[in-house]
């Protein structure tokens, strides 16, 4: 066994790429859940994003337009969920599961003629000066634009949720929709647009998968990434900054176990793959034990339909 052949620089570099799709999707879901909606259709929206992004960038020759299309695709699919749960008051858990089923099927149909195509390459964005720093330069500043963009979005969502009025309204709606409604906020509208935002970000995550991480379109290519995104949101205790940590830990465990295997360490892969989920449960428990910090827990109205009767 030769531990020296594991280079932390490349591990971190790779795990950032591995984590980016789930980071996008999780960030979107975080905002949705903050608004009190549980959308289990992340996997479906991701794969729709993956095919829309891929198809459009192949047709236009531009990855950037592809990413816009990925976001639009994810958002469009989430409209179905938003209408069902916000206007038809359908149960969110069931609707989300149905959305995943629908999205996976639809993506396969849409993508029929795109298997085997090659998407336009996207160049790495070497940040000036920063990328020349030894070790750290290669780790952190040698990525493509969309890795940085995901981090910028985390900053944005954090700022939006904690520093802007609208963000606080979103949180209020998620915490207690009846009082938010009583104060005069439109719970339905706020949730509707939160769901759309979540869909768009899930779409971006899918787009990153099909355009950069794997660069190709294959049916069913998300292979459960959307479900991991859901776990990360919980892991992060609904805090945008911790989302980065969560995504990098979940992504990192895969990369690390592959590296350990490659140098011949005998590890129990099933056990290792379980750990992030077990950690998430422990984190959840710790958060809920600590009652003094109520803001750490799940949004109060998570998963409940808002019924406005007049």
């Amino acid at each position: 066994m030769d531990f020296a052949s594991i280079d932390p620089t490349t591990i971190i570099y790779n795990l950032m790429i591995a984590a980016t799709p789930i980071l996008y999707a999780a960030l979107g879901e975080l905002l949705v859940e903050k608004a009190g909606v549980l959308n289990l259709g992340v996997e479906g929206m991701m794969i729709i994003g993956a095919i829309c992004g891929f198809a459009i960038s192949v047709e236009t020759g531009s990855s950037y337009i592809g990413f816009i299309a990925a976001a639009c695709g994810g958002a469009m699919l989430s409209v179905i969920f938003a209408v069902m749960t916000q206007y038809f008051l359908a149960n969110q858990v069931a609707s989300g599961l149905a959305l995943t089923l629908f999205g996976l099927g639809l993506a396969a149909l849409l993508g029929h003629s795109y298997t085997g195509q090659v998407p336009p390459q996207i160049s790495k964005l070497d940040l000036p000066i920063l990328s020349t720093i030894p070790v750290f330069g290669k780790m952190f500043f040698h990525h493509d634009f969309f890795v940085y963009f995901s981090l910028m979005l985390v900053l944005f969502v954090w700022y939006f949720l904690t520093k802007t009025r609208l963000g606080l309204v979103v949180q209020a709606v998620g915490e207690n929709h009846d009082s938010a409604h009583a104060i005069g906020y439109s719970v339905t509208t706020i949730r509707f647009f939160s769901i759309l935002f979540g869909g768009a970000l899930a779409g971006l995550g899918g787009g990153y998968l099909s355009l950069i991480r794997v660069p190709q379109w294959t049916e069913g290519m998300t292979a459960g990434a959307g479900w991991i995104a859901l776990a990360i949101v919980v892991f992060s205790s609904w805090r945008p900054w911790r989302l980065i940590l969560g995504a990098y830990i979940f992504g990192g465990i895969t990369i690390l176990q592959l590296n350990l295997q490659a140098i011949g360490v005998n590890i129990d892969i099933a056990l290792l793959s379980m750990t992030p989920y077990a950690i998430t449960i422990v984190a959840l428990v710790l958060m809920s034990v600590n009652k003094s910090k109520k803001s750490l827990g799940a949004p109060g109205s998570l998963g409940k339909s808002f019924i406005k009767v007049s």
Binding site: N14, A18, Q216, T218, M221, A223, T254, Q261, A270
Partner: peptide
């Protein structure tokens, strides 16, 4: 030979990671 078991027949992202890892490992 460096062998990596991915425990799936089909997971593009994981297979891509495995390939990257192996290349990084020489």
């Amino acid at each position: 030979f460096k062998v990596v078991w991915v425990f799936t027949w089909f997971d593009p992202a994981k297979e891509a990671d495995a390939a990257s890892t192996l290349i990084d490992q020489g």
